[in-house]
Design a protein around this nucleic acid. Structure first.
Length: 134
RNA sequence: CCAGAUGGCCGGAUGGCCGCCGCCGCCUUCGGGCGGGGGAGGAAAGUCCGGGCUCCACGGAAACACGGUGCCGGGUAACGCCCGGCGGGGGCAACCCCAGGGAAAGUGCCACAGAAAGCAAACCGCCUGUCCGCUUCGGCGGGCGCGGCAAGGGUGAAAGGGUGCGGUAAGAGCGCACCGCGCCGCCGGUAACGGCGGUGGCAGGGUAAACCCCACCGGGAGCAAGGCCAAAUAGGGGCGGCAGCCGCGUUCGCGCGGCAGAACGGUUUCCAGUUCGCCGUCCGGGUAGGCUGCACGAGGCGUUUGGCGACAAACGCCCUAGAUGAAUGGUCAUCGACCGCCGGUUUCGGCGGGAACAGAACCCGGCUUAUAGGCCGUCUGGCUCA
RNA sequence: GACCCCAUCGUCUAGCCAGGUCUAGGACGUCAGCCUUUCACGCUGAAAACACGGGUUCGAAUCCCGUUGGGGUCG
């Protein structure tokens, strides 16, 4: 069972996560994260993700491609390797476009580890089942 | 074959795995699931023009502003776009480029240089009359002249037609020929304009992407327009100043209604209309929630007919993206136009990289800008062969 | 997405809207020299810009068109 990953769409939520100052920059991406506010509407095990690609990265075509690669890597990693109860913001960089996909995935795992949001159970399950991804 | 001109089209392909957003059908424990079908561009871009659509002004009218366009005719819903022609310029040519109305309605400007820059004028100079000096008697030099001239020199971007011949004291449209220009007439053309003939000795420098004049066009804002629903709430509040008249209520602070008054279109005037106590100052609160607008339209494709063409008409077929932190993809493999390096240097072989510009946001018609490479057609010039 | 505005030395600006001695002026800053035992202050001097590409004009920072880069507003 893979838990669902919600999307962040409100500007105020992005600003809140940026204020938390819990972030780590990898060569392919930057991760910002924060424990989301306890409200009755959300389960404690939920996790949500948003994407930010600024105009500095490139024109609209490049920004779209960067965002799509970030979405693809988040879809593969976040559901079973990120801790529940957190919001994540992935920020695209100039290197996101040309970085190999496997390296981008390990960048995200490393960023989760450095921000203390890597799921420990998923870590052992990864070692048991598939050693090809690392 | 080489060089060039021009018009149109394409602008990565195939497959595996995993995904995203609408639409239709079925099932559903209303969370969703299954199946089918669809899903970026020639510029989607810049937002430079023209429209549709929506709201405001809404009825209007006139004048004045303001902005835009600018040879002629046609096409179009419309245009500053397109087509055909005219004129000017460039090219051997195909062909390309041109904001291309008016400078004898008026105003302004033309720095520096130059005598003079717009009423024309005369610095050097040329010629001449007269006086003086010299003389080899041909002349030379100097002064004076409200004497003549504008050919030559010089300045300038530009100096009041150009070239040649005649003419003259020297010269000059002074005369003549050709060219240019103005005016008149005739002919051709729908017109711009062109041709021919006559006539005038030349008047009228340039600049209108300077003001301007003439002709024509234009009400303003924009889908964050606008409508519906939900939430919130106030008809926001405080302070200071000014508040005409009447009626009602009054807790005597004031409140409500009417008249008056004020505000509102680019300006003014007139009626009509809408809104509202007015002015100044300070303090707040809330909001980028949902649905709709929103995908059948000046729509696309094909054939025929009319037209030089832009395009139009008729008939037939088709439905073709609708997201909203914003879908239309991620990844792997194979093929690959093309590029670089090396060996060979005609063919070819090896290695490495690998598709240009670029992403709909209410929708159309244009323009402009960016764009690796490739395909097809037409035409021009040159060379070779038959 | 729509609608507007701006661009001049390293920085802030004048000149633009009546085109010409504009080779673009000023202030702060920078550099060099003088002054001072030295530094500062002061004095003298120098370097340094019209965003880019076309057009109009004899002549463009100025007028017109296009491009690029910044900035602002929206209920």
């Amino acid at each position: 069972m893979t838990p669902a990953v919600g999307r962040l769409t409100r500007r105020s939520e992005f600003l809140r996560i940026a204020r938390a100052r819990r972030k780590w920059a990898a060569p392919g991406l930057i991760l910002q994260t924060d424990r989301f506010h306890a409200s009755s509407a959300h389960d404690a095990d939920d996790r949500r993700v948003g994407f930010t690609v600024t105009k500095k990265v490139g024109n609209a075509v490049i920004r779209n491609r960067v965002k799509r690669r970030l979405r693809a890597v988040a879809r593969e990693i976040l559901p079973h390797r990120a801790r529940g109860g957190f919001d994540f913001v992935l920020i695209g960089r100039k290197g996101t476009l040309i970085r190999p996909f496997e390296a981008l995935k390990s960048d995200l795992v490393q960023a989760l580890d450095r921000t203390g949001t890597l799921e420990r159970i998923a870590d052992t399950r990864n070692g048991n089942h598939s050693g090809s991804t690392s």
